[in-house]
Simulated assay, not measured.
Amino acid sequence: MATLDTLTPDAIAARLSGPPEERAALVRAGAEAGVAEAQAVYGQMLLDGADVPADPRAALGWFTRAAAQHHVMALNMVGRCYDLGWGTAVDKTRAADCYRIAADRGLDWGMYNYATLLALGEGVAKDRATALDWLQRAAAMGNAKAINFVGSFAEDGWAGPCDMAKAADCYRQAAEGGDFRGCFNHARMLLDASQVEAALPWLTRAATLGNARFVRQMRDWIGRLDGDVRDRALAALPC
């Protein structure tokens, strides 16, 4: 069997487009050969159970090996594992350290994740002003989740005066960028402005993109609306 360093780019592409076991074998070979990108990708495969059985503990091991080679997304994923208890015990302080380093190295997801912990005071002292600064940096890079969170800061006045116009604009941008919470918040603001027809497609998109827990929460919120608007909004959601 050919080793990874003897395969041509076309041969690698063919293997990656082949059966799942071939893709997994190729990526694992790269990971075991010390290729940081392959280690990060194989870790994600193990975390998601994509083409291989899910194994969060092994995923963390591969993310850690890639992070040791300064792979910034892998470092962010080490943080995610400690943040959410994927393959290890929850350790918010360690998660915050990983996110902070990834953020300092310019990764928008590191900025977003570190800002989230700063905003909540988990693993670090609560500091919403610094959180907003990191969110704005990630938002400037086009991160839709960060844009939505900036909107929340503006709506709720978490690090300055409330600014509903800014919140509405951020939610619109986040929705257009594909963030499901942004889709919902944009729809919510449109409903508040009595723009029901404009809001309904965004509710549909939020439900399509969102996870099951979020969709349940969204249905509960819609259920508290008045009469016709409630019925039309619920009808807009996928079954």
Rank of each mutant, 00 (worst) to 15 (best):
A13W: 10
A13N: 11
A14W: 09
R15Y: 11
S17Q: 15
G18T: 10
G18W: 07
P19S: 10
P20Y: 06
P20K: 10
P20W: 08
P20T: 04
E21A: 15
E21G: 06
E21W: 09
R23P: 00
A24E: 03
A24M: 03
A24P: 14
A24N: 12
A25R: 05
A25T: 11
A25Q: 07
V27T: 00
V27N: 00
R28C: 13
R28K: 15
A29M: 14
G30Q: 04
G30D: 04
G30N: 06
G30I: 02
A31P: 07
A31C: 11
E32K: 03
E32N: 09
E32S: 04
A33M: 04
A33K: 03
A33T: 12
G34K: 11
G34V: 12
G34W: 08
V35K: 05
V35E: 03
A36K: 01
E37W: 05
A38T: 05
A38S: 14
Q39T: 09
Q39E: 15
A40V: 06
A40F: 08
V41E: 09
Y42L: 04
Y42S: 03
Y42K: 03
G43H: 01
M45L: 06
M45F: 09
M45A: 12
M45N: 03
M45H: 06
M45Y: 04
L46F: 15
L46E: 02
L46W: 12
L46D: 01
L47E: 02
L47A: 05
L47C: 09
D48Y: 12
D48G: 10
G49F: 15
G49V: 13
V52K: 03
P53E: 12
P53L: 10
P53Q: 11
D55M: 08
D55I: 08
D55F: 04
A58T: 07
G61A: 05
W62M: 09
W62N: 02
W62K: 00
W62Q: 00
F63P: 03
T64Q: 12
T64E: 13
T64R: 11
R65F: 06
R65Y: 05
A66Q: 01
A66C: 09
A66W: 00
A66D: 08
A66V: 02
A67H: 02
A67Y: 01
A68Y: 13
Q69Y: 13
Q69C: 14
H70P: 06
H70K: 14
H70Y: 14
H71T: 10
V72E: 01
V72F: 00
V72S: 05
M73R: 11
M73W: 10
L75Q: 13
L75I: 11
N76A: 07
N76Y: 00
M77K: 08
V78A: 00
V78L: 07
G79I: 03
G79C: 08
R80Q: 13
C81F: 01
Y82K: 02
Y82R: 01
Y82H: 11
D83C: 06
D83G: 06
D83S: 07
L84N: 09
L84M: 13
L84R: 13
L84A: 07
G85N: 06
G85Q: 05
G85T: 07
G87A: 03
G87I: 02
